[in-house]
Design a protein around this nucleic acid. Structure first.
Length: 449
RNA sequence: GUGAUUGUAGCUCAGUUGGUUAGAGCGCCAGAUUGUGGCUCUGGAGGCCGGGGGUUCGAAUCCCCUCAUUCACCCCA
């Protein structure tokens, strides 16, 4: 006998958990649909060439590769190094996110699609990360993307969608932060070390976690001088309401400078009368986000204060994602919800709505052949009428059948046994009160459960 | 990849400076109660003390290795 187990970082979702997950998924899906996004699913596996190199070196290492079938030894024999060995043994990998497969889909179907194209996608993704709290090796993403337009209206829509979804999920206190990649590029230019853009973004992204002293230490460690570090300090010290921040940015990045598109972008998104985005959206110049393909606006939603999980949703604009697959000049913008982290946050805060189950309302006891046949006919009629109902499959002791109802928290029990058959009626028992009444079949079908 | 943590019954966990037959609560099964659940009472089943090696008269307990777990870092949802 082997000890049953599941792979590291994966989970079973028992019924009680699934109910809560479905609440999250349904909430998000309904809002996606309401915003006009169309459903899409792509395969679990993609060709390695599709995924490789899209997420940086780290991403490549975290990808789950699928071993090819066939003569492994033959293929492996004269491989020069590990890298070559792996590429000979594997030509497919599990998807790492939903965005790259989406870009691949768009390029493959460019002639059938109508642009701008809006799609949403709810599927698991896999990362060979080391699991820890709120980090799994298999987890779900819910993505909505609009591709084929660079209109800022899309950013506005996605921010509103995000705001609406967070509210519907009960996360009223979740904050939304926004930034723009070209502001970060502009910052790198101001330091006089434009080539250090990646190091700068990685460092300042940790501001929340390690504080300014940690960030400056890291920049120093990466070879930045104190004058340049001071430039970074001044930059991320810019905060406050939209107007004030945008004003400072305008002064910092005049027309023609590398940071200017960011100023224009954020101004266009935040300074308009019709969007009404409110105070939930904050400009956060330290927001960087890891994924390499973002080029414009970047968006992130954080769980409410006190919850330790990382960001629960994120997204941004990518100007040339499909260019990787040969289709140039198509801009897109998307948002992604992390279901598992939203789950953990709601659980931690006790924010799941209490009444999330549509479990069985009525159990028919099985008290003998004749009664069972009548019960089954009634059961079918109740189901057709939309009442979740079931019948105990075997003629077990009554004690056991009632315990079954009790443990599954089924509120009503119907009994048709000897005495009921004699009376031509049935007994309906309310398990919460213990009350039992003798009623007719018609009365049962008219009962409100 | 780096650094820690914890592995004892189905679950949550006790277990004394190393000392008889390894315990509790919950859960499970049976009975009190042959057509009435929850509550109560009584009884029962269930453990290679993660695995391997070592020290010792004697190891759940000490040492080494290994596997698994959880957490933090890195990175990320």
């Amino acid at each position: 006998m082997i000890q049953p187990s599941i792979p590291k970082g994966t989970r079973d979702f028992p019924p009680a958990v699934m109910r809560k997950r479905q609440f999250i998924l349904d909430t998000i899906r309904v809002i996606f649909e309401r915003y006009g996004f169309q459903p899409l699913e792509t395969p679990s596996m993609e060709n390695l060439a599709t995924l490789e190199g899209k997420y940086g070196e780290e991403g490549d290492q975290l990808m789950f590769r699928v071993l090819d079938n066939g003569e492994i030894l033959e293929k492996a024999r004269d491989a020069a190094d590990t890298r070559q060995l792996v590429s000979r043994l594997s030509s497919k990998a599990l998807r790492y996110d939903l965005t790259i497969p989406f870009a691949r889909f768009v390029v493959m179907n460019q002639h059938q699609l109508v642009f701008p194209f809006r799609r949403y996608q709810v599927q698991p993704v896999w990362r060979a990360d080391r699991p820890q709290k709120s980090r799994y090796r298999e987890f779900y993403q819910c993505d909505a993307d609009i591709i084929g337009t660079d209109s800022l209206l899309c950013e506005i829509e996605l921010l509103q969608l995000l705001d609406e979804a967070l509210t519907a999920l009960g996360l009223k206190d979740a904050g939304i932060r926004i930034n723009h990649r070209s502001l970060l590029a502009g910052l790198a230019g101001l330091t006089g070390r434009p080539e250090m853009l990646p190091e700068i973004t990685i460092a300042i992204d940790k501001l929340d976690k390690i504080g300014w002293s940690g960030v400056s230490e890291e920049l120093l460690l990466r070879g930045m001088d104190s004058r340049a570090i001071q430039v970074v300090a001044n930059f991320i010290a810019i905060r406050g309401d939209h107007q004030k921040v945008l004003e400072s940015l305008r002064a910092l990045f005049p027309e023609g400078s590398p940071g200017h598109p960011g100023v224009v972008g954020l101004t266009g998104i935040l300074e308009n009368s019709y969007a009404g985005l409110g105070s939930r959206v904050l400009i956060d110049l330290s927001l960087a986000r890891g994924l390499h393909y973002y080029t414009g606006t970047i968006i992130e939603a954080l769980p409410p204060e006190g919850v330790k999980t990382g960001s629960i949703a994120g997204g941004g604009r990518y100007d040339d994602l499909t260019g990787l697959f040969g289709l140039k000049g198509i801009s897109g913008v998307g948002i992604s919800f992390g279901v598992d982290r939203i789950y953990d946050a709601l659980e931690e805060l006790g924010l799941f709505p209490p009444d999330q189950d549509s479990r069985t309302r009525v159990l028919f006891l099985n008290l003998g052949e004749e009664g069972m046949q009548q019960s089954y006919r009634l059961l079918q009629r109740m189901r057709q009428a939309g009442t979740p109902a079931e019948i105990y499959p075997s003629q077990a002791k009554m004690d056991r059948q009632l315990k079954y109802a009790d443990k599954n928290r089924i509120p009503y029990v119907v009994m048709i046994g000897g005495s009921e058959l004699e009376a031509g009626k049935l007994s309906l028992k309310d398990l919460s009160t213990g009350q039992q009444t003798l009623i007719s079949a018609e009365e049962l079908l008219g009962w409100s459960f």
